[in-house]
Amino acid sequence: MTMVAPPSDVRRRELAEFLRSRRERITPDQVGLVRGRRRRTPGLRREEVAQLSAVGVTWYTWLEQAREIQVSAQVLDALARALLLDRSERAHLFALAGSVDPAPNTPCPSVTPELRVMLDQLGPIPACVQNSRYDILAYNTTYGRLLCDLDRLPPEDRNCLWLAFTDPDWRACTVDMPEARRLMAARFRASMAEHLAEPAWKALLARLEGASAEFREMWARHEVVAQGGKTKYIRNPLVGLLHLRHTDLWLGPAAGPRLVAYVPLDEETRSRLERLRTLSPTGAGLPQG
């Protein structure tokens, strides 16, 4: 007797194979990631797709393994953007997932080559692209050396909130770090209100609570603060004290990705940023990876 797989099993396998095929066709350069010398995987790695779409690595791996898990429309939208799907591919993704696309004609912006060029040309101004979860999706040379050596970190650790509470180099560079961490935790809580059921947000929250007693104490206060620019001082180990204005340029809706830049507020800071950009990434004071 021939056994026929349930339609739901067939749909999950088709979804898994479609995601894998789209992931393997994209080069790191297309989404603003560093290729690296030891890359064996064709296209992007699973953890890179997870980072770009702000979902958990384990959760995305299960999705590509056709496991029986629930996928929200918001997560599908994030995956479509991360995988640079066109409108036909986006429609196919939602159809395989059995979900209704809330915005079927929405373009799928990501860290495009043009945005990567813009980041580079902003130098010496430190700049990066972040999503609302504080994941750092792309950055220029100066930003990569501003608070720690970002190149030494795995993609899943390139998150400003995680680094502010766990990375000693990042913490040492930020003047008035306790207040900065308080504001970041409050902004994260405000942003999370729209993402309470999403696996990536819950996974980051659990990771932070497990790693930092300070974060647990701040999270328990239930403080909320809206996003916004501010003046700050950063003490870089290579070039000294920097006086900067944190500025956000939203690349879509206010809850979506944004370009973050640190504009120098005096000539001494501008000169020091110029020097930081030209220094060797293995110069004194930068962690070795």
Rank of each mutant, 00 (worst) to 15 (best):
E89N: 08
E156Q: 09
L286N: 06
P199Y: 11
L273A: 09
D120R: 11
V129D: 00
L183W: 14
L115M: 14
P168A: 10
L76N: 02
L259H: 00
P7W: 11
L84S: 13
P42S: 00
L161G: 07
Y134D: 13
E209N: 10
L79Y: 03
V100G: 06
V31E: 01
S88H: 12
P264S: 10
V175F: 03
A16W: 13
K232C: 02
A5H: 03
F94I: 06
V10A: 08
E17F: 12
P253T: 04
D77T: 15
W162D: 04
E48K: 09
D77Y: 11
L147Q: 11
L204Y: 07
T282I: 12
T112S: 13
N236Q: 04
Y139F: 15
L273T: 08
L19G: 03
M177E: 07
T58H: 08
A211Q: 12
Q227E: 13
P104I: 04
L208C: 07
V239I: 07
V10E: 09
V34T: 09
G144W: 06
Q288K: 10
P154R: 05
V260K: 01
A186D: 05
A180R: 05
T247C: 11
S72T: 15
G289F: 03
G240C: 07
V10L: 12
P126Y: 14
P28F: 04
I136E: 00
M118I: 12
D169H: 14
R207K: 15
A78N: 07
I234G: 03
P257E: 01
A91I: 06
R90T: 13
E194D: 14
L33I: 02
V224C: 02
T142V: 12
D248L: 09
Y60A: 11
A127V: 01
Q51I: 12
P237F: 00
D135W: 02
A220K: 13
G210N: 10
P107M: 05
L63G: 09
W59N: 08
A185Y: 02
A103G: 03
